[in-house]
């Protein structure tokens, strides 16, 4: 451990170690943020239940894992289509009714949804902290020079990159992406071209829920979670989106990394300052670069 390293190199090693951990943590926050970002990008909908949906998905993965004794990765593979369906139905039957010029209905309905999911989970699973068991992979590390890189944090970060590349390809290359962008620009005209905006929106939220499932897999295997953990995940996702710049998926990765590094640096100074340091980084970006690092959307 740290105390066995020679004194002279310890400080710089610690800094590198902290930075690496922070960057990898940023991958998790980028996964939180990507789902929020596509829903906002396509529907101009800020889903306040986003964090609670992540926790909901984590409980789904946990349930499948313990019920069938499956590997969590396999459980996530099963949970993903279920979450897609849940997201599709949620958007089609509830959230679509709230979309319009007035931003109050979607905000209040998703806030209500957040409270329903939190208390529903509390009823179903009690307030205990849970964790998705991963066996030997949990503590596995790869020695890379002086720093040890955890296998799971590395997988998280790589998954974030894969998800972002995948989403960008889908949105900018695939026919469904063209429909997303057309509906986002002008749902009425898109409707005249044979697109059904209601279904496109439902598909987009379904897709976001698949990303949410990926985020939930890495959240649930990395740390403890409980039914009330959703709002903090929403806040991290939101901070990553704003730091990165609205509308840019690569921006969410940058935002996630900035947030992750700020939090790990804060935690090394004083463990109680971890979350606060993230908020301060967010406020600093808001003060000096209010549109984030890679703004794309005009609004």
């Amino acid at each position: 451990m740290r105390s066995t390293r020679p004194i002279s190199g310890r400080a710089s090693m610690n800094i590198i170690d902290t930075l690496v951990q922070g960057i990898l943590l940023g991958g998790l926050y980028a996964l939180f943020a990507a789902g929020l970002s596509i829903v906002f990008g396509i529907m101009r909908l800020v889903n306040l239940a986003h964090g609670d949906l992540i926790i909901f998905a984590a409980f789904a993965i946990l349930t499948i894992t313990s019920m069938f004794g499956l590997n969590p990765f396999l459980s996530a593979l099963i949970a993903a289509p279920l979450m897609f369906a849940a997201g599709w139905l949620l958007q089609y039957f509830l959230l679509n009714r709230t979309l319009g010029k007035d931003i109050l209905p979607p905000l209040l309905v998703t806030f209500g949804l957040s409270i329903i999911i939190q208390n529903g989970l509390l009823e179903g699973f009690a307030a205990d902290s849970r964790r998705v068991p991963l066996g030997s992979l949990e503590a596995a590390t790869i020695p890379l020079g002086a720093v040890n890189i955890g296998v799971m944090p590395l997988l998280t970060f790589l998954s974030a990159i894969v998800v972002i590349v995948g989403l960008n390809t889908l949105i900018y290359r695939a026919p469904i992406g063209r429909a997303f962008r057309a509906t986002s620009d002008d749902p009425v005209t898109a409707g005249l071209m044979g697109i059904r905006p209601q279904r496109i929106f439902a598909t987009a939220t379904g897709l976001a829920m698949v990303v949410v499932t990926v985020a939930a897999l890495y959240l649930g295997t990395r740390a403890n979670f409980d039914p009330s953990a959703g709002p903090s995940r929403l806040i991290y996702a939101f901070e990553a989106v704003i730091i990165g710049g609205l509308g840019s998926l690569w921006g969410t990765l940058v935002g996630g990394v900035v947030l992750g590094v700020a939090q790990t640096i804060g935690a090394t100074i004083n463990p109680e300052w971890q979350i606060l340091a993230g908020h301060i980084a967010f406020l600093a970006v808001l003060a000096f670069k209010p549109r984030g690092f890679f703004p794309r959307a005009v609004d």
Binding site: I275, L283, A287, D299
Partner: peptide, 28 residues
């Protein structure tokens, strides 16, 4: 000063973040 830089629903989440930050500072 911070939250007015955000529009619409993002203003809302921004005010929530500020409340969280104030809570964490007060807890110190």
């Amino acid at each position: 000063f911070f939250s007015f830089r955000l529009q619409g629903a993002y203003f809302g989440v921004g005010t929530w973040v500020i409340a969280e930050a104030v809570r964490l500072v007060v807890a110190q």
